[in-house]
């Protein structure tokens, strides 16, 4: 290979790195340039005193608080639904499953993980239609349906991170308790799960981020532009990512658009925070904090 090619390849790689960094800083820079001015407390709470809004004494009409509350409830509901199922399935896959069951199950989890979120949303929507026709007229696309659909969306992530963090434990950790006479389940309960806690936890935090940012699922299953703070599981609700999508096509004045930029910055902040948290946890900070008090 001659000098020229070598220089060209080097230049190409550096150009790629610079393009990537440039593009992402353009996006974030543009967002902040347009939206930094509106990041104030009244972006979230409007004219309502913050304390009244948080205690649900008064409705917030022109702020992002209902959307943030909607996203919060949504994330809590779906992660708490997906977590027990995902943990159990992950532990089963890593510790019990063998032979053809293991092959079939892991193939189907791969498929589940890859299903586009809009298809999961469509599935949630058809469940709502199905329930509406056959069980109760009161069921429409709502917080409950969205939460369930999002739980389906993150379930394979939780299964996979649980399975992976259990499987990567060293054989020494895996065998000690068994050699001392512990049963299989005791080994899982007292040794394997606590030891892989940081891996599992960081997977959960990433799942939270996935729930918070996903728009395709919720736009089919009940997110609306104006609903206030959700009153029950069966009501429609607002959510931060849907609000951003809605504003991008339906804004009527510069003020609304500015709110859209503000909402984007808040969502970006939440997701970045969750991402960093997952990273820190993986680095083992959390294991020390949670398991060795």
């Amino acid at each position: 290979m001659n000098r020229l090619w070598e220089t060209l390849i080097k230049a190409f790689s550096w150009a790629c790195g610079i393009i990537l960094l440039g593009a992402i800083s353009c996006i974030i820079g543009y967002l902040f340039m347009k939206g930094a001015g509106v990041i104030r407390l009244d972006l979230i709470f409007g004219d309502t005193p913050p304390l009244d809004a948080i205690l649900l004494k008064r409705q917030v009409l022109d702020g992002l608080f209902p959307a943030m509350a909607g996203t919060f409830f949504l994330v809590c509901f779906s992660v708490f639904t997906a977590l027990p199922l995902g943990l159990a399935a992950g532990i089963y896959m890593s510790e019990y499953a063998g032979g053809s069951i293991r092959r079939v199950f892991s193939f189907s989890f791969d498929i589940l993980a890859g299903i586009p979120s809009i298809v999961i949303g469509l599935f949630g929507f058809s469940i709502a239609v199905f329930l509406h026709r056959h069980f109760s007229d009161r069921i429409f696309p709502c917080l409950l349906i969205s939460g369930l659909s999002l739980a389906f969306l993150v379930l394979p992530y939780i299964i996979r991170t649980t399975q992976l963090s259990l499987e990567t434990l060293p054989a020494r950790t895996r065998l000690t308790a068994l050699a001392l006479g512990a049963t299989r389940f005791q080994n899982i309960r007292y040794v394997l799960v606590p030891q892989s806690l940081s891996g599992i936890l960081s997977g959960v935090v990433l799942a939270v981020g996935r729930c918070a940012e996903d728009t395709a699922v919720i736009m089919l299953t009940g997110a609306v532009a104006m609903a206030g703070v959700p009153q029950s599981l069966l009501s429609s609700y607002e959510a931060l990512p849907f609000y951003i999508y809605y504003i991008s096509s339906q804004y009527t004045n510069p003020h609304e658009l500015a709110t859209g930029y503000g909402a984007s910055i808040i969502l970006l902040g939440i997701c970045t925070f969750l991402f960093l948290a997952a990273f820190m946890i993986q680095k083992g900070l959390a294991r020390r904090a949670l398991y060795y008090p």
Partner: peptide, 14 residues
């Protein structure tokens, strides 16, 4: 790594 966490809707919005 951090870029994998940026919400899709933000890419669309910008």
């Amino acid at each position: 790594r951090l870029m994998t966490g940026v919400p899709t809707v933000i890419y669309g919005f910008v």
